[in-house]
Design a protein around this nucleic acid. Structure first.
Lengths: 112, 112
DNA sequence: TTGATATGTGAATATATGTTCATATATTAC
DNA sequence: GTAATATATGAACATATATTCACATATCAA
């Protein structure tokens, strides 16, 4: 995984193409949010921007696993980066990320 | 799949258990939304309640595939059912479903 | 340059997931 | 009861996914 952006490959019923395609894009977006490691990474970035090493330490995971997921998050435009000397600092790409996150969280929190 | 509700099985870092657990529940929620077939089924249910056969016809898919996904959606409390004679009619479980759907859709629509 | 540190990445592995097929269950009509 | 219709489900299969491992790349300091 992680080598290309999420792309749904199923065939469309060839009707209402635009709306249908949006559903596939939407599925891809939720797919990115549908993994606890990625959510935990995003959660780390809510408070402040962080580098790979910091996130890896916070989550007790290898830098490799984090790096793979960060690449995936970046490909799907949920995080952005800036270089600061040796380290590359990751942060949330836009406010939508936290909005969608919180929307889901409130749903989960009130026990559906 | 489809035999049990989505449950993330990864081990927790044993800190802040409550919040951490919520992240796993949240990942499971997004996982349900992260498939285009399920989104298309939900989309069918936005306008009105539908039975398996109707949905299968609308999406040009087998009743089996739809039934499996509807079971998954029901297990995760996104749809509910009522029986009407021979047919079982599915509908959205609550307003949250459409809210989360639309939240993601607006994100996708404005090109991230 | 060399060494140390931070991050990236391809390949391999193990697991998870979605769909199909065949069959089972449930309701209704007769 | 049987037949017809609607839905459910277990098993098998193919694909997708997340993580680990080993190694590559990049920056900085001396």
């Amino acid at each position: 995984m992680n080598s290309t952006p999420a792309i749904s490959k199923k065939k469309l019923p060839a009707r209402n193409i635009t709306d249908e395609q949006k559903l596939y894009d939407l599925a891809d977006l939720f797919k990115v949010f549908g993994d606890s490691t990625r959510l935990r990474i995003l959660y780390c970035l809510f408070s402040k921007e962080q580098c790979v090493k910091e996130i890896a330490q916070m989550l007790h995971m290898t830098h490799s696993a984090i790096s793979h997921q960060l690449r995936y998050l970046k490909q799907n435009k949920l995080v952005k980066t800036r270089r600061s000397g040796q380290t590359i600092v990751y942060s949330l790409a836009d406010k939508h990320v936290q909005t969608i996150f919180n929307q889901g969280l409130s749903h989960v929190s009130e026990g559906k």
